[in-house]
Amino acid sequence: MLNETAKGVYTIAVTPFLPDGAIDFDSIDRMVDFYIEQGATGLTILGMMGEAGKLSAHESMQVVDRVIARTSVPVVVGVSAPGYAAMETLSKASMDAGAAGVMVAPTSNLRSDSQITAYYHGAARVLGDAPFVLQDFPLATGVVIPTNVILQIVDDCPTCVMLKHEDWPGLEKITALRAASDAGSRRISILCGNGGMYLLEEILRGADGAMTGFAYPEMMAQVVAAVNAGDESRARDIFDAYMPMVRYEAQPGLGLAIRKYSLAQRGAIAHPTLRNPGATLNAIAAREVDILAQRQTAALRKLGV
């Protein structure tokens, strides 16, 4: 079961599709193996990057069952939904299937601190014993969750064991949360998103690792390992080598198409298809990604990686 000590790299997994939009189950197997081989210590599925909103309830459970059957690493399932009923149903089914925990983002209609707190109180009740990740991603949800509200939720809800930190800018939030735990508040795991854009600084601020979908999960694993080994200089060198690709992936509205293209090029999935409606890369953009990948490989070779 997921708990407050979780660390490392929980890769946010894509959902592979065939060119006609059907789920590509063979690619799910390949993708899971690929993520683990590249250093993932856990997987998070049915998140925003997993196009969860484009799947039926039946398809969602098909993906959950297939991923869990393929891997022995912890699997976190995104169960965010407009209402508690769908959240409760998917969470129970996922936990029964062997998931380690679930992830919940706030609904976009939450505006006040009290509304946010009440929402997570209700989520914790319907999730029961399932440990959950609080997803803090204001750029996508439109909901800003202040540090004191996160601390209140953590204090009120023992099953909240992890924060997926995706605020931007948000480094000060990590510092404040770690200062609070040092002062006696319950310490939970903090894994960070944003495509790895700020991973190095986030780890140095006290985060426990990454929970994001950058198409090169080995970058996160290598940076986290170097920092943990006390070699900040090497961590910076590795991070810098991947930064042009991280930057290119960060384009709003196109990032997932770029990631799926890269994953297909790397053999992790068979097709770069996004389920409709979804973006696609044109030939110019694909060529730009190819050039970045070539230069990235050359930079890493010089570092002996």
Score class of each variant (00 low, 15 high):
242 Y>G: 08
188 I>P: 08
229 A>E: 10
159 T>N: 14
260 K>H: 05
257 A>L: 04
247 R>C: 09
219 M>E: 12
200 L>Y: 13
190 I>N: 03
240 D>F: 07
163 L>Y: 12
249 E>T: 11
230 G>L: 12
206 G>V: 12
215 A>C: 14
190 I>E: 03
178 R>G: 02
234 R>L: 14
238 I>K: 08
193 G>K: 12
223 V>P: 00
240 D>V: 12
197 M>H: 09
210 A>E: 11
166 E>C: 11
230 G>V: 14
233 S>C: 10
170 G>I: 04
188 I>S: 11
201 E>G: 15
251 Q>V: 15
231 D>G: 10
215 A>D: 09
223 V>Y: 02
196 G>I: 07
211 M>W: 06
176 A>I: 03
244 P>V: 04
157 C>K: 04
213 G>H: 13
177 L>H: 00
201 E>T: 09
210 A>Y: 09
215 A>Q: 06
261 Y>R: 13
174 I>E: 01
232 E>C: 12
220 M>D: 15
205 R>D: 15
191 L>K: 04
231 D>H: 04
220 M>K: 13
170 G>M: 00
208 D>A: 07
217 P>E: 11
181 S>I: 00
155 D>M: 12
208 D>N: 13
222 Q>L: 11
231 D>K: 04
161 V>I: 07
195 G>N: 11
170 G>Q: 00
208 D>Y: 10
258 I>C: 08
236 R>L: 15
218 E>Y: 14
173 K>S: 01
165 H>V: 13
233 S>M: 15
158 P>V: 05
229 A>H: 06
229 A>S: 14
257 A>K: 10
203 I>C: 01
185 S>N: 07
214 F>M: 14
210 A>F: 12
199 L>Q: 02
193 G>L: 05
257 A>W: 10
232 E>V: 15
216 Y>R: 15
166 E>H: 12
216 Y>Q: 15
214 F>D: 13
253 G>E: 07
209 G>Q: 03
253 G>N: 08
194 N>T: 14
234 R>K: 15
223 V>W: 00
185 S>R: 12
238 I>W: 07
172 E>R: 09
162 M>R: 13
159 T>Y: 08
228 N>K: 15
173 K>M: 00
255 G>A: 06
170 G>H: 00
213 G>E: 11
246 V>L: 10
204 L>R: 03
226 A>R: 02
236 R>G: 06
215 A>S: 14
231 D>T: 09
176 A>P: 01
157 C>E: 15
238 I>F: 03
179 A>K: 13
182 D>P: 03
175 T>N: 11
163 L>G: 06
205 R>T: 07
163 L>K: 10
192 C>E: 01
223 V>N: 02
183 A>R: 06
186 R>K: 05
156 D>T: 07
207 A>M: 05
191 L>T: 01
181 S>Q: 00
251 Q>M: 13
197 M>A: 13
241 A>W: 08
237 D>W: 02
251 Q>Y: 04
202 E>R: 09
226 A>Q: 01
200 L>R: 01
165 H>A: 14
154 V>Q: 06
232 E>T: 15
201 E>I: 06
250 A>G: 08
200 L>Q: 09
255 G>F: 10
153 I>T: 08
242 Y>D: 05
239 F>A: 03
183 A>Y: 05
